[in-house]
Structures are given as C-alpha cells and as structure tokens.
C-alpha cells in the first residue's frame, strides 16, 4: 500500500532551479533510498517532504492527504543527532511524544522505556548525550525519530558522520532493528554500498537541476546482513548505479 507520494515537486532558490519534477512514492514498511551526489538537492527535497519548506509547485501526500508545507506529520533525522545536551537520553527520546502527541512526561517515559532494549540502548536512559558514543547517539536519535513518526520517517544521511567500522556495526544493527519494528523509511544517502545494503528500492538523483534519473529495485530477500556486500549480485547493482550516476 502506498503511504507517501510526491507529485512534480519543483523548488528554486534565487532563480536557480534546485529540484525539478520530483515524483516519488513510498509503500508501507518499505525502505527507499534517495541516492545522489552532494548538492543535488536531496536535503531540499527532504525539507519539503517534512513540511519545513513550501515547494514552488507540486504536492506531498501522506495517506492520500495533502500535507504540502505542513510540518509535524513526518519525523526526520539528520546527520547531526540533535540530541539536546540538557536533557537525559530518555527525555530527549520522549520529546516527540510530548510535543507531537501531547502526552504528559510520565506517560511519554512509560511509552519510550520498553523500546530502549529493542534499540540496544538499555541502561543509558538516565545518561546525558555527552556520555554516549557516536553510534549510540545515532541510535538514540533514531529511536526519537521512530517515536515521532506516525508511519513515515525521513533519514537524511543519518550514519555519514560515523567512522567505517562503527558504520558497519550500525548497519548490521539497523537491519536487525527494522525486523522488529515497522517503519516506512525514506533514506537519503550518498553512500552507494549503504543504499544497496539497506534499501528495497533506490531512486538515483542527478544534479543541476536535481531530477530523478533512475529507479532500481533491490530484489535481495530480507533479513540481510553485511555479507550481502560480498556477493556478485551486490556488485552488479553497484555497477548499474555507478553508470546511472554518471
């Protein structure tokens, strides 16, 4: 079932066309990546989908409802974890429940607490973000995003600030967590391996102006693991993506 769709999104800044006629869709429980080089307008598209920017023309639909320019419907997560240093990890994670879903603090804590185990964050509830490692912080940010999401989460290069080894670990973890929770995800990345490993489908985006040039379905069954990256199948996908990025 289709859950999110954009129709012919266009956006210019100072007469420069950033993105042009972007029409993409996301099905329930699907992970779709938006892959493109830096500066292709991925983040602009993101801000439009999350409602923070209003497109010049085009529309965004969530479950058939027009949410163009209306923030608060879709949760998103950035490369910067944006955990607030003055709240404990638990309260950071609860933030979306309090603001978005209007829960009181106690109820929010009760809702969020059981998920700490699922997300591999057990025992850090009462710590402050500064006491966590980079990987842990991204996990906490993802948990906050998950709790904020009604159905859809936008992840904007969430793991790109992590070092390679931590990144491998967090990919493994991410694939594992996604088996346990249901989340339809639109994932922005410039990392080809990451896109193939995690996605059900990949949109390739080119720049000047940003348009969708290709759409690739990754047929590999889930659950996947990092071993997928060592197969010929993976390399074939990679070849195809590299050629369409050119």
């Amino acid at each position: 079932m289709e859950i999110l769709r954009t129709e012919n999104i266009n956006k210019s800044f100072d007469d420069r066309k950033i993105i042009k006629d972007i029409s993409i869709h996301l099905k329930q429980n699907e992970l779709v990546s938006l892959l493109g080089v830096s500066g292709c307008g991925k983040s602009t598209l993101f801000n439009i989908i999350s409602g923070l920017y209003v497109p010049d023309c085009g529309k965004v639909f969530l479950n058939g409802e027009d949410i163009t320019g209306k923030p608060g419907n879709i949760s998103y997560m950035l490369q910067k974890d944006l955990l607030l240093p003055y709240y404990t990890v638990l309260d950071n994670v609860c933030l979306s429940l309090v603001i978005k879903k209007g829960m009181n603090k106690k109820k929010a804590r009760e809702t969020a607490s059981p998920l700490f185990k699922t997300f591999g964050l057990d025992g850090v509830q009462d710590k402050y973000p500064s006491q966590l490692s980079g990987g842990m912080r991204q996990r906490a940010a993802l948990l906050r995003t998950y709790l904020a999401s009604n159905e859809v989460a936008l992840l904007d290069e969430p793991f790109s600030a992590l070092d390679t080894i931590t990144k491998d670990e967090i990919h493994e973890w991410y694939l594992d967590v996604m088996q346990k929770i249901k989340l339809s995800t639109l994932f922005v990345t410039h990392d080809i391996d990451e896109a193939i490993l995690l996605s059900d489908r990949i949109y390739i985006m080119s720049k000047n102006p940003g348009v969708i040039t290709d759409e690739i379905v990754i047929e590999r069954q889930k659950p996947r693991s990092n071993d997928f990256m060592l197969t010929n199948e993976f390399i074939e996908y990679k070849k195809r993506i590299i050629s369409s990025l050119k």
Binding site: S50, L52, G72, K100, A148
Partner: peptide
C-alpha cells in the same frame, strides 16, 4: 527545525 518538524 527539529521541534518544528514535530509540529511544535
């Protein structure tokens, strides 16, 4: 922006 994206 994060707070805004939560509808704050």
């Amino acid at each position: 922006n994060l707070i805004r994206s939560m509808g704050g």
